Simulated scan of single mutants.
Amino acid sequence: MTETSKDVRRAQPEHRWPAVIATVIALAAYAFLPSVVPAIERYAVVGVCLLMVVALVLYNPHRLTRESMWSRRAEIALALIILVANQIAFAETIIRLLNKRGNGSELLLASLQVWLTNVIAFALVFWVLDRGGPIARSMVPRSKLELADFRFPQDEDHDAIDEVARGSSAKADWVPTYIDYFYFSLSNSMAFSPTDTMPLRHRAKLLMALESFAGFVLLALVIARAVSLIG
Rank of each mutant, 00 (worst) to 15 (best):
F184C: 12
Y43K: 06
F32K: 00
S35I: 05
V125R: 08
A55R: 10
W17M: 15
T197I: 15
D149A: 11
R63D: 10
R151I: 02
R72M: 12
A160W: 01
I81A: 11
A148L: 00
V140G: 00
N86L: 04
A79W: 05
L219D: 05
P61A: 10
A77H: 04
K205H: 03
G132Q: 09
P13N: 06
A121K: 00
F182K: 02
R225V: 02
V125I: 08
R131N: 00
V54N: 01
Y30F: 13
P38Y: 06
A204M: 03
L51E: 02
L186R: 09
A191G: 07
W17Y: 14
E106P: 00
T2S: 15
R142Y: 02
V119D: 01
V57Y: 07
R63W: 12
P199E: 04
Q154P: 01
S168I: 09
R72I: 05
F150C: 07
R16C: 11
T195C: 12
T4V: 12
E92G: 09
A121H: 00
A77S: 15
L98E: 06
L98I: 06
T195N: 14
I25H: 01
D162R: 13
I161K: 14
M69V: 09
K171H: 13
A214S: 15
Y59V: 07
I223L: 14
V8C: 04
K144D: 14
E211S: 15
L229S: 12
P38L: 08
N188G: 03
P141K: 06
E146Y: 01
A28N: 09
L109E: 07
P134A: 08
N60T: 05
W127I: 00
V164D: 04
Y30T: 06
L78Y: 05
R225Y: 01
P199R: 07
L206R: 10
A79D: 04
S105P: 00
E211I: 08
E106R: 08
L109T: 13
Y30S: 13
S138G: 07
A148T: 00
L97W: 03
V227L: 10
L108A: 13
M198G: 01
G104I: 13
A123F: 03
L129C: 07
L27A: 07
A191R: 11
I179D: 06
E156S: 15
L64Y: 05
P194S: 06
T23A: 14
F213Y: 08
V217R: 04
A89G: 13
T177L: 08
I161G: 01
S68V: 09
F192H: 06
S71W: 11
L229I: 15
A29D: 14
L98G: 10
P134I: 09
L221T: 11
E146K: 09
L33I: 10
E3S: 07
